[in-house]
Simulated scan of single mutants.
Amino acid sequence: MLRRVWAPTGQPLVRPVHPRYEWLYIYAFVNPESGESRFWLVPVLNKEVYQGVMAAFAKRVGADQDHHVLVVQDGGGFHVPAVQGHPPGVEAVTLPPYAPELQPAERLWALTDPTVANHCFDTLEDFTQTLAQQCAWLETQPDLLSQHTLFHWWPLLTK
């Protein structure tokens, strides 16, 4: 199968596409002010995975009764906290529907997508490895992430 890709004017190009139906999703967390980030690659989007990722995120950033973290999220149907609520120290705010421009993490996809766009990977594992390397690299680029996610209206923390 062939797919059209961007090319200079007057020079049509096509790329081979191997359609498959295996999926991989990214959970991304970013602090717009500091650029600190965390990425998780998961095979499905559901409430159990969401709860697991939130627990892992809380542990990784040290969220607890004395260290509070605010998570801004979209209204995905799988964004369902466990019965006992979010992990201690994590509070989630859900954005209004159809407002991706308010979500700083939406700007991260412009930094992850080019790594895999218009590439034909032999296996999902190859795809996952390439994307994981990009996400790991992005975690080491706080200035780049702040440039993409720190909106002019974002409330800055006072120390």
Rank of each mutant, 00 (worst) to 15 (best):
A63V: 07
R4W: 12
L156K: 13
A7K: 08
T123W: 03
L24R: 07
G62L: 03
W137E: 03
N31A: 15
L138M: 01
W154T: 05
E106S: 07
F151Y: 15
H79G: 00
V49I: 08
F57T: 00
Y50I: 11
G10L: 06
R38T: 07
P87Q: 10
H18I: 12
F121M: 00
L2S: 10
H79F: 02
A117K: 10
A110D: 14
P32I: 08
Q141T: 09
Q133R: 12
V49Q: 01
P19T: 11
L70I: 14
M54V: 04
N31H: 15
W137A: 02
T149D: 02
A110C: 13
T94V: 05
F29Q: 07
I26E: 15
K59H: 14
R3C: 09
P96F: 13
A92Q: 07
R3G: 06
E91D: 13
G76H: 11
Q141Y: 08
P43E: 12
L138Q: 01
G85I: 02
H18E: 14
S146V: 05
A63M: 03
T115L: 06
L124P: 03
V49P: 00
S37V: 05
R20V: 11
A82N: 02
P100F: 05
E33P: 00
V90A: 03
A28P: 00
T149P: 01
E91L: 13
P19F: 07
A92P: 06
V14G: 12
H148Q: 14
L45G: 11
H119Q: 09
Q133P: 05
T149Y: 01
A58D: 05
R20K: 06
W109N: 01
D143Q: 15
F57W: 04
P81H: 00
G85K: 02
L24M: 06
E106F: 08
F121N: 01
L2H: 11
T9S: 11
Q73I: 14
L124T: 09
G76P: 02
K59P: 08
V72L: 13
A92E: 09
D74C: 10
G76Y: 09
P100D: 03
P100L: 10
N118M: 11
E125G: 09
P81M: 01
F151K: 09
A56C: 07
A56H: 05
Q51G: 10
S146C: 10
Q65I: 06
A99T: 12
L157F: 11
Y27E: 02
W6A: 05
R3V: 13
L150E: 00
V42D: 05
V69F: 08
